[in-house]
Computed example of a mutant assay.
Amino acid sequence: MKKFTSIFSILLLMTHFGFAQEESLKEEIKALSKAKWQWMADKDADKLAELFDDKSVFVHMGGSWGKEREVNIIRSGGIWYKKADIHEVSVEIIDNTAILLNRITLLAEVGGNEVTNPFEVTEVYIKKADGWKLGSLSFTKLMGPGDR
């Protein structure tokens, strides 16, 4: 019985440690996403270029493209992500991949025009040797009743 109790205690501790570690990773991803929104508002293209994986993809209402174009659009002010009001955030970890969902209201300047839109934003992060890299950023405009 002592052996069973010891094994059960070890398994319980391992489960608790694994849960705590996953929660810590989720908080790390949430903080990284929040920093990304600030860098976008600040038009800090250099920090964003470090965060974006070389193979990253970006999906907007007007099309999709890769890292170089996204960084250049931000640098030039073609899209200025002025402020993202974040209403809900969730994160799921699958192996070395984190999927973050943000429900936001985005104030942006696009082609010189200020616009506000409600979005569900999907961010996919991949854990690499040098840290987390953003692999995909997709904006889905919300259209239904009750959307922010």
Rank of each mutant, 00 (worst) to 15 (best):
K82C: 10
H60Y: 15
L32R: 04
L48D: 01
I29W: 03
W65H: 03
D42T: 06
K3I: 12
N72T: 00
S76I: 01
D44R: 00
Y81C: 06
A84G: 10
D46I: 14
V110R: 02
Q38E: 15
Q38V: 15
K83R: 11
W39N: 02
A20V: 14
L107N: 10
G144V: 15
H60V: 13
V57F: 09
K47F: 13
A45H: 01
P145N: 12
L137W: 15
E68H: 00
T122W: 07
I86G: 02
L48P: 00
K26M: 13
V57G: 03
Y125M: 07
S56C: 05
S136Q: 13
I86L: 04
L48R: 00
W37T: 01
G18F: 14
H87F: 13
E70D: 06
G146W: 03
N113D: 09
D95Y: 05
I79K: 03
F139C: 01
S90N: 09
A129Y: 08
S9T: 07
D85N: 05
G18H: 11
M1W: 12
R69I: 01
F4E: 13
F17L: 09
G135Y: 11
E92N: 09
I73D: 00
E92Y: 09
I74F: 03
G77I: 08
T105C: 07
